[in-house]
Design a protein around this nucleic acid. Structure first.
Lengths: 229, 229
DNA sequence: GTCTATAGCTTGATAGAC
DNA sequence: GTCTATCAAGCTATAGAC
């Protein structure tokens, strides 16, 4: 490994950092390659050289971050399944597996922090379908299937549509939560002292469990859920 | 009122319709005035003439729609207060007041439908703060104060931060729900038969009430809430 | 009020020197 | 691998005819 290659990786990462930061604030079309190059302290021509195109750069940001997050989820899912043999997995464990890796990343500048969280939120709320669809397929759809299957097992008395709705809204709440932390502070008009990632995970899971359990269609399951949860 | 003025209003509205439709799909920077003019069947020069600038056009879309929605909310809030003298307002009524006018608008093409809903979602998830902040202040902040006050009364055992968090997440869920209805169908891989607005309002309110009630910090209030709710 | 034409700038991508 | 220079196309906003 030559020192040139090391330098190249460092440059690539500096570009990705700069792009992540700017895309998070103004969206894909709101940021020019020139602005990114300037932020990265690099010349414009380097961006198409390393990433092929603007879309390629955008996609590369997701590839850098989501692999680790989804790997962490898969490890947790596997551990969860091993713990729960013969019985269905617990709803709050499933939700923690869904939520925790991304929330932790959104608190860790080394893993993208709020910037990457905002980009995730942008993709999840995908207004610009044609552009964003490949990213959803590559980084979200596979996990979605796994989580919905687990949730269906944890909620045996719910219809397929109920599970779908629960997963859909859980992802929405997750994306909203990690991307709009500072928005909450604006609403409050002051700084909030709720910084730690684990606290956010706990609050988010409590919210989701309550929402999903509390909207049970049948009276019987509702009582059982309260005892179990 | 001359026929020229009537025609002018019609043209203005056609431009607003076209802009709303395109902004909903690709965001502010992803749409050019040229594309809007073409979609509206109008010449480019007319847009700056009628709206001053691209930002002015974007703001005009919100002015056209949000006035009516917030007026409806104020009427409902007032009626709610008259119904509940001496006792705190019910949480589900407050949430219905927050949610129903916007959900109904998101189902009605005459009031912007999904397109305007997507624009609302974009502002609520405001990545591009400098640009969007004036719109939040003009159309959302006033209502936010009123709703948080009502929610604080309906949830007397909760802290100020709890109420803040509940309101913040309710708005997030509302914006997500109205903007991503079709997203749910992609996830399902089929068309869902859940078209009516009232059904969506009911499902959303049930979700929010369950989430807010179910995350009560104290055990005592939790029991009381279940009896009351 | 609407259209045509254009000014002045920015955009993403590429070619070629080093 | 990085930089400089440049292209063709796109952008918003404006001026002036009708």
């Amino acid at each position: 490994m030559s020192s040139g290659r090391i330098a190249a990786v460092a440059t690539r990462d500096r570009i990705l950092d700069a792009a992540e930061h700017l895309f998070a604030r103004r969206g894909y079309y709101g940021v020019s390659l020139r602005a990114i190059a300037e932020e990265a302290g690099v010349q414009l021509g380097l961006l198409p050289y390393h990433f092929g195109s603007k879309e390629g750069l955008y996609a590369a940001i997701f590839e850098r971050r989501m692999g680790r997050i989804n790997a962490e989820r898969r490890v947790r899912l596997e551990a969860m399944r091993k713990r729960a043999v013969g019985r269905p997995p617990a709803l709050d464990e499933i939700l923690e597996t869904l939520v925790a890796p991304l929330v932790h990343a959104s608190h860790d500048p080394e893993r993208g922090g709020v910037d990457f969280a905002r980009m995730v939120n942008d993709v999840v709320n995908f207004g610009d379908r044609e552009r964003v669809l490949p990213l959803m397929v590559a980084h979200f759809d596979g996990m979605a299937r796994e989580f919905m299957e687990a949730m269906a097992q944890a909620l045996p008395d719910r219809s397929r549509d109920d599970v779908l709705w629960a997963y859909h809204f859980s992802v929405g709440a997750l994306a909203f939560a990690i991307a709009n932390r500072d928005h909450l502070e604006r609403l409050a008009g002051r700084t909030l002292a709720d910084g730690d990632a684990d606290g956010h995970v706990a609050r988010l899971i409590a919210w989701l469990v309550a929402a999903i359990r509390g909207t049970a269609p049948a009276g019987v399951s509702r009582i059982r859920d309260r005892v179990a949860g």
